[in-house]
Deep mutational scan, measured.
Amino acid sequence: GPGLTDLFKTEKAAVKKMAKAIMADPSKADDVYQKWADKGYTLTQLSDFLKSKTRGKYDRVYNGYMTYR
């Protein structure tokens, strides 16, 4: 089956995709945050998933999740 690194890459891609969806349409934020909360994502995990070469690119999404939880 898929190894943990593959799983991480898949999760990371999914999280980034959802983060971009929030940035494009902030009204989606609560739905996405709820999904992440259901998956039990911690802020540390989210921070790892949303690492970007562009500093602060996903800060709004991260901060939103922090206040959501």
Rank of each mutant, 00 (worst) to 15 (best):
Met18Ser: 06
Lys35Leu: 15
Ala29Phe: 02
Lys57Trp: 05
Thr67Trp: 14
Arg55His: 12
Phe49Cys: 04
Asp30Lys: 12
Lys28Met: 13
Gln45Thr: 05
Lys20Thr: 05
Lys35Trp: 08
Gly1His: 12
Lys9Asn: 11
Ile22Leu: 09
Asp38Phe: 09
Asp48His: 15
Val15His: 01
Asp30Tyr: 12
Ala37Arg: 08
Tyr62Met: 15
Met66Val: 14
Asn63Tyr: 15
Tyr62Val: 15
Lys20Phe: 06
Lys20Trp: 08
Tyr65Thr: 00
Tyr62Asn: 03
Thr10Tyr: 10
Lys39Asn: 09
Ala14Glu: 14
Val32Ala: 06
Val61Gly: 01
Gly64Asp: 06
Phe49Val: 04
Thr5Asn: 13
Val32Trp: 02
Asp30Ile: 12
Lys57Ala: 06
Leu4Lys: 12
Pro2Asp: 11
Ser27Trp: 07
Ile22Arg: 00
Thr5Pro: 09
Phe8Cys: 13
Lys53Val: 05
Met23Ser: 03
Tyr33Cys: 01
Thr44Asn: 13
Gly40Gln: 05
Ala14His: 10
Asp6Gly: 06
Asp25Phe: 05
Ala37Cys: 13
Val61Cys: 02
Asp48Arg: 15
Leu7Asn: 15
Thr10Glu: 13
Asp31Asn: 08
Lys17Val: 07
Gly3Lys: 10
Leu7Val: 11
Val32Asn: 03
Leu7Ala: 15
Thr42Met: 03
Thr44Val: 12
Thr5Val: 12
Met18Tyr: 06
Glu11Arg: 06
Thr42Phe: 02
Lys53Phe: 06
Lys12Val: 06
Ala14Thr: 09
Lys28Trp: 05
Leu4Glu: 12
Lys51Tyr: 08
Ala29Trp: 02
Leu4Ser: 12
Lys51Glu: 10
Lys51His: 08
Lys53Arg: 10
Met66Arg: 12
Arg55Lys: 14
Thr44His: 12
Thr67Ile: 15
Asp59Gly: 06
Gly40Tyr: 03
Ser52Thr: 10
Gly3Met: 11
Trp36Asp: 00
Leu43Gly: 07
Arg69Thr: 12
Gly3Phe: 07
Arg55Glu: 14
Val61His: 01
Ala37Asp: 06
Met23Thr: 03
Arg60Ile: 13
Phe8Tyr: 15
Thr42His: 03
Gly40Lys: 05
Gln45Asp: 09
Ser27Gly: 07
Val32Ser: 03
Arg60Asp: 13
Thr5Ile: 12
Ala21His: 05
Leu4Pro: 12
Thr10Met: 10
Gln45Val: 07
Asn63Cys: 15
Gln45His: 08
Lys51Arg: 11
Tyr33Ala: 00
Ala37Gly: 04
Asn63Gly: 06
Lys17Leu: 11
Leu46Ser: 01
Gly64His: 03
Val15Glu: 01
Ala29Arg: 05
Met23Leu: 14
Ala21Tyr: 09
Leu50Ile: 03
Thr10Leu: 11
Ala19Trp: 02
Phe49His: 02
Thr67Ala: 15
Tyr33Glu: 00
Tyr65Cys: 01
Asp59Pro: 02
